[in-house]
Amino acid sequence: MQKNAYFKGLTIPFLLLLPQLVITALFFYWPASQAVWQSFLLEDAFGTSTEFVWFENYQTLFSDPGYLRAFINTIVFSTAVCVLSLSIALLLAVMADRQLRGGEIYKTLLIWPYAVAPAVAGVLWIFMFDPSLGMLGRGLLSLGIGWNPRLNGHDAMLLVILAATWKQISYNFLFFLAGLQAIPKSVIEAAVIDGARPMRRFWTIVFPLLSPTTFFLLVVNIVYVFFDTFGIIDTVTGGGPSGATETLVYKVFADGKGGSNLGGSAAQSVVLLIMVIGLTAVQFRFIERKVSY
C-alpha cells in the first residue's frame, strides 16, 4: 500500500515544477551568475573594452573607506529597523489580540502601510519630516529641536529607519497576530490559574510559544532591510547627506548607476549575496533548533 499520492515517472512532477524553475532561473540564477561574472571584469571609462581582472574589483572594494562606512550604516540601519519593527509590531499585536472585537478595523488599518509602494512611503515621510514643508518637521523645529535630515547625517539615518520600520510593521503585525491567535486560549487560562501575572505570562508562555513566528519574521525582516529598503532610502535621502544613509544595497545601485563602475558594483552585490546567504544559514542552524518545541 502506498501511503502518499505519487506520480509514475518524472515527467509530470517536472512539468509541475517547470514554471517555478523557469522563474527562479530567469530572475535569480541568471542575474546572479551575471553579477559574479561581471565582478571579475574591469571596464574602461568609455565602456569600449573590458578586461578580466580576477579579484581586483574585490580588492578595490575592501580598501574603499566609503564601503566600510556603508557596511557600518547597514548594520546600524538593519539592526534598528529589525528591532523596532518587530517589537512595535509585537506590542500592537498583543494589544489587538486582547481587543479582538475592534480587531477587524485595527487589523485593516494596520495593514495599509504594507500596500504602500516604497517610493510613495518615502515621499510621504519626506513631506512629513521636511524641516520647511513637513508638519512634523516644522513641529520639531518649533519645539526647539534642531532637525534637518537634509544636512544632518544622524537625522537622515533616523528618518530612513523610521520610514523603513513603519512600512514593515504591518507585515510583522499580521504574522504576530496570527501567531498569538494560534495559542490555545486554555493554555493562557491555565497560566492565569497558575498565578502568572500578565507580564510574567507574556515572557514565560506567550513569547516562547511565538518563537517560531518570531524566527520566521527575523529572517524575512533581515532580507527586507538588506534589499527591499532601497526604494525608501532612494526617495527619502538618496543615500545622503554625503553618504550618511548609504547602505550596502544602496551603494550597489549608486556605484553601478550610469555604468561608471559596473565591475565594482557587481562585486558588491556578490558580497551582499554571500552575506545574506550566510546570515540566513546561521539563523536556521543555530536559532531554529532552539525555537521548535
Binding site: 490555545p184 486554555s186 493554555v187 487560562e189 491555565a190 497560566a191 492565569v192 490559574i193 497558575d194 498565578g195 502568572a196 501575572r197 514565560t204 508562555i205 516562547p208 510559544l209 518545541y293
Partner: peptide, 29 residues
C-alpha cells in the same frame, strides 16, 4: 482573581504548556 481563589483546573484539552517539560509544567504554578 483566579490565581487567588485557591483553585486548580483540569481542561478538556489538558492545556499543558507545550514548550515546557512535564516537571516544569507541574512546577510552574
Amino acid at each position: 482573581e483566579p490565581a487567588d481563589r485557591d483553585i486548580a483546573m483540569v481542561f478538556q484539552n489538558y492545556a499543558l504548556y507545550p514548550h515546557m517539560s512535564v516537571y516544569d509544567n507541574m512546577a510552574y504554578g
